[in-house]
Amino acid sequence: MSPTHDFHYRVGARVGGFRPGAHAGLAFGAGDDFVTHATLFARPDPRRIDLRASLRDPRGEWLVRLARQRSHIPVFALIDVSASMGFGTPTRKLDLAADFVAALGRAATAAGDPLSLSAFDDAERPELRLAPSRQPALVAQYAEQLRTAECRSAGHGGLIDALAPLAGRQAQVFLVSDFHRHDAELDTALDLLGRARVTPIVIWSPSETEPPAGDGLLRLRDLENGRLRELWLRPELRRRWRSAVAERRRALDLRFQARGIRAFYMSDPFVGDALTRHFLEGA
């Protein structure tokens, strides 16, 4: 709830749709975004008559200024609540996701966009679904619900189901996950989101990216498949740990880059300004 979580998103391309909003749109309408002139006959709107252009017109027609209006875009956030999101003490990664969702609710309200939320693990989680809404209170409530949600199921099979209402639509989509073991699903999902603008929010807890400081035997159990990994922690292994994390990040980046997507990496705590900057720098 901290104000530092607040951010603003920006949609890079012009959005379709006629409903007014905050984003540069494609539809003609009331706006200051001049496109062209049309004859008064074609666009019978005498308020927009451009006298100077009409006088210059060789055919002597009355010309009207045409501008594009600013439109809204539906915003979706898909939140991964699989077992691996329950990792982290005292802040779970899902708590970070909740911080993000709460801030997103305020951002969407500020932009006037309807926000829908849904959560998935192995299947879609129907109890964690919010229909498109412009009410910030509902989103705040949803965020609180996320904080108490259980992360029990392994797998991300529900991602496709959660995406189904979005398929082929133009929207701003936030994919909130740690992107562990999303392989087949992720590609399918990105295919389905061909027209949408996708912003992956990659949540990695500092205690998973940074090896513990002490030397010794570290026994790790995978949260999702229960496999065991035993490491004798030492400086050399710590170096390999960090390089494995960097390698993973590079691979994920490459994968998104192939689709012209830039991921936002988020750690504890969530800094809204960083996300704003990400959108300002963004393509």
């Binding site: 990792f87 998973e208 159990r221 995978d222 949260l223 292994l237």
Partner: peptide
């Protein structure tokens, strides 16, 4: 006694650690 971890798959393999654990 194992500590939960989101994805052990991305950690480096450690033969020494595996031997000691075994």
């Amino acid at each position: 006694e194992a500590i939960a971890y989101p994805d052990v798959g991305w950690l480096p393999e450690d033969r020494l650690g595996r031997l000691i654990g075994l």
